[in-house]
Structure formats: C-alpha cells, structure tokens
Design a protein around this nucleic acid. Structure first.
Lengths: 154, 154
DNA sequence: CTCGTTGCAAAGGATTTGCACAAGT
DNA sequence: ACTTGTGCAAATCCTTTGCAACGAG
C-alpha cells in the first residue's frame, strides 16, 4: 500500500485510504506549502489570503494549522524548527536539510548525505536514529561572517 | 569580600568589564543553569522557586529571561532549540551537542566532533560556519524505536 | 444522511516590554 | 547620586480548542 509516489497527486488517495475528505482548504494548504520553499504557518496563511480562491475566501488560521498537521501525518509535508519561534514547512518531495544563519536568517539547503556519517555514528553509539528532515543547523553565513568579523553572535 | 567561588568569578569579571552589576538573581540564574543539565527557562524559574534563597524570594520570570539572555551574551551559557517552543540552556563549559528523541523527549549528548566533517564540508561548499553548540539533532532513541517498531513519527 | 471539516472566537502557554521602585558601585 | 536591575502586570506571539453550521461521500 505504501506507494512512494511524488506528493502532488497522492493527497486524494491518502485521504480516501483513511476515510478522510478532500476539501478545498486542504488542497490549498498543500499547494501553498509546495509553492513556498520554507514557510511558517503564518506565512502560509498570508499566502492563502493573497491567492484567495475564485470565491474570495481563505482558510482560517486554525484550519491551516490543522491541515499542516494532517498533511505531515500523511507524509506529504515536513516541518523543521529553525530556532526560535516559527517552524517552517516544506513539501516532502526530496529530503534535504536546512542551514540557518543566526545573523540574517538566511536559509540554505544542503545535501541530505551531509550527516550520513554522523547519523551512522549515532546509530552505532547510542542506537539513535537521526531524522535528517527535521534537522536544522545554525551558524553564520559567509556574508554575515565577513560583515561582523568573528564576533560572537549576540 | 569577593569570595573566590567557582562560577562567581567569571561572572563578576565579565559584568564589571561591561559596567554591569553583580546581583543575587543573576548569580542564582547562572547557578541554576549550571546545576540543571539542560533546562528550559520555565524549568529554571521553577528551580529557583524551589531553592528560594534564605530570604524566601525567587527571581521573577522576566528576570530569568533577561538574565539568561545576558549570560549568553557574556558567553557563560548557551541555548539550543530542541524543537517546538522549548529552548534549553546549559553552561558553556564544554561544547557538546544535543540529540532529542521525538517520541519521549529524551535528551542525549554527543561528542562535538560528531559534526566536524559536516561542518568542514559546509564551510568549503557554502562558506557557512556551523555553530555546534546550537545544533540539536532530532530522531528516535533506541527505546522508542523498539517500542513503536518502525512507525513513522507523527 | 452521516460524519469529517471549517470558521469564529476564546482559551492558553510562553516570552517580552513598560514603568516605577530598589539596589549595586 | 547615578545608572542598572528587578518585580509586577499588561501586552504579544503563536498555537490550540470548543462548538454550531457546512459539505463531501
């Protein structure tokens, strides 16, 4: 049953399989997450308000949250905590990990195999399985490093 | 006079250097952070309330937050975001990184060199300097893995 | 028709901020 | 004394929840 298709079409499928329903808000939330690379629930809500459907309505904030959670449970989206405040969501298409600059907030992506050796080591040492998709590395990007010298982050 | 206690010395020094003041709440917050391995601001506040000084008072929540921030600026403590809304603070004594189980919330520590190769790669590729102290890896610990089988994290 | 879903509003928890007073130097 | 720090309370921010009406299957 677990067909590993891309995440565009399977929404309806996965919903049906669980006796859940395909609704407009649901599709729009998924569309927004896919469109925006890494967006906070807040940003997703805003986006939906912008692209208000032909009917001029946008899903309520609570609906956005509820569906984000559902979509994640369905395996269609993932979220990552970049640090303080808001988590960012992204389509679960291809695994990649996030790198965040503490100074400017810039988000970069890195290859998922970046942490392979670390993951293996943790698995061997502690029996701990790392979930690469939820990992966010913090640091300083080149631009900020040059701008502030080697100062400590405030 | 200025007793030469362990953690008080660096604190007083750094405060003076900045024209800031050594206060009881400040010392207590630092002591609590040092005592608790990895504690949330909330937990630190609770701890302080428990160990209420001889005077029976405990620092206010806002004071805890303000001092946590200050202590971090002074380089005496570090904080890490383990995921949803709960930063944990720890004394900045020895660098180590955190690994969190998504299921049980268990926090494990790992050697800081775990990410060395990844850090080097990022530096080379993106010019990105990783801050190991702020990194928290998410995943599943052995106990939870065995308990739930190979279930997907919700 | 039945039951999952939504919108709205209010509830909550966590962190921050404004201020006047207390305290460190 | 002068300036920083603290407590208190109110203000924010982000997220969750209760409930009646709505709509997909």
């Amino acid at each position: 049953m677990a067909d590993s298709r891309d995440s565009t079409a399977p929404l309806a499928e996965r919903l049906r399989a669980r006796g859940l329903r395909l609704t407009a808000p649901r599709q729009r939330v998924l569309a927004a997450v896919t469109a925006l690379e890494h967006a906070t629930p807040e940003a997703i809500g805003a986006r939906l308000r912008d692209e208000a459907g032909p009917d001029g309505t946008a899903p309520d904030t609570s609906t956005v949250y509820r569906n984000l959670e559902l979509l994640e449970r369905l395996g269609l989206v993932w979220h990552t905590h970049l640090g303080k405040g808001a988590p960012v969501y992204h389509a679960a298409e291809h695994p990649h990990l996030h790198v965040v600059c503490q100074s400017c907030g810039e988000i970069a992506s890195a290859a998922p195999d970046l942490l392979d050796s670390a993951a293996e080591r943790l698995a061997a040492d502690l029996g701990f399985t790392v979930d690469v998709g939820h990992v966010a590395l913090s640091g300083t990007c080149r631009a900020c490093r040059e701008r502030t010298g080697s100062e400590h982050p405030s």
